[in-house]
Amino acid sequence: MDVTDTEESVRQAAATRTIRLEVARYRPGQDSEPVFQDYDVPLTADWAVLDGLNYVKDRLDGSLSFRWSCRMGVCGSCGMTVNGEPRLTCGTFLTEYGDGPIRIEPLKGFPVIRDLVVDIDDFLAKLSSVRPWLIREGEELPLTTEYAQTPEQLDAYKQYSMCINCMLCYSACPVYVLNPDFLGPAAIALAQRYNLDSRDMGDRFDVLNLEEAVWGCTFVGECTRVCPKHVDPAEAIQRGKLTAALRSVLPWSKR
């Protein structure tokens, strides 16, 4: 038997294997609460959970709703709860779950609009509340000056700028899930990203030094663990606490 035949037989065997997806369905007007519906999809080594869902949508049930876009872990729109864990479904492979089944639910902590689609309005409002842009003072339009940064100045905030707004950190955070008023990991990390930027002249501690902002965090650390971009929001929040605390004790000190 030559190599090509072996590959072909492996491929055929793989094509016949399937894995069961238990997908949470919520159809407003029809379901009063989410119910699970099972689908069997082909189990192949290079399929992500998102490929399985697209197979369901294309071949088995066109009514299934979910968000996705880039399929490469950049857009941040395909976050779901996979076997209880918040994951980007485009980067989570079916083979991780052996023979299955795989339980797919919408991200925890957010209102469900339909099936796997959650309402992100509150999250977007939180993001913009921290003024996530470079704040400059005393500059006249048009802005023509360049502000070069040293590698060290870039390093100071670069890690926090990698966020793709996928909301996995919110879903993993028990503080947020129990109390949706909590400003949450990504928004605080984003505020710190601008606070630590040498070009920024703003000060976001009016929105950070609040009970519902950094002081609401009890340092569970799950935000950092689930972050697909290694942003480390937990660290951003603890640093925010320390800075806010030092500035409360020493009101004249800058960060």
């Binding site: 407003p28 007007g29 609460e33 989410p34 925890k108 209102p111 469900v112 609009i113 129990l178």
Partner: peptide, 13 residues
């Protein structure tokens, strides 16, 4: 009115 909000999970821990 039609979005689904899950009840508080008493055994989240």
């Amino acid at each position: 009115t039609s979005t689904y909000r899950p009840p508080r999970d008493a055994f989240w821990f």
